[in-house]
């Protein structure tokens, strides 16, 4: 499997990662060699195998829909780079 720098650009966009022009060819080479490793999986036929998502095959546990947390808005927003009047600030999204 060989990925080209333009494919890296597409993947980086999907992952919302800024990658410099010069790094694209390095990542193309790295990711191609990782995919070569990954493709060794194709050596085995898995047609009738059930995929394993949870190692112990446990179902997702559900809980009652009751309030379990107290309001900690101010504490939690202390870690935000930009907060004003209890709101997270981002660049303008509507003109």
């Amino acid at each position: 499997m060989s990925l080209q720098p333009n494919e890296i650009e597409k993947i980086a966009h999907l992952a919302r990662l800024a990658i410099s022009e010069t790094d694209k060819s390095v990542y193309a080479e790295n990711l191609s060699s990782i995919l070569d490793l990954v493709e060794q999986m194709n050596a085995v036929n898995t047609a009738d195998i059930v995929p394993l998502a949870h190692p112990l095959n446990e179902p997702q546990r559900l809980r009652d829909d009751v309030t379990s947390e107290t309001d900690q808005r101010e504490l939690l927003q202390e870690n935000s780079p930009t907060v004003e009047k209890g709101l997270f600030l981002v660049p303008k999204v509507l003109e």
């Binding site: 993947i11 992952a15 990662l17 990658i19 990542y27 990711l31 990782i34 995919l35 990954v38």
Partner: peptide, 10 residues
């Protein structure tokens, strides 16, 4: 970044 991109691709 490598792992995020491999995962995103997969």
């Amino acid at each position: 970044k490598r792992r995020i991109m491999i995962g995103t691709y997969a």
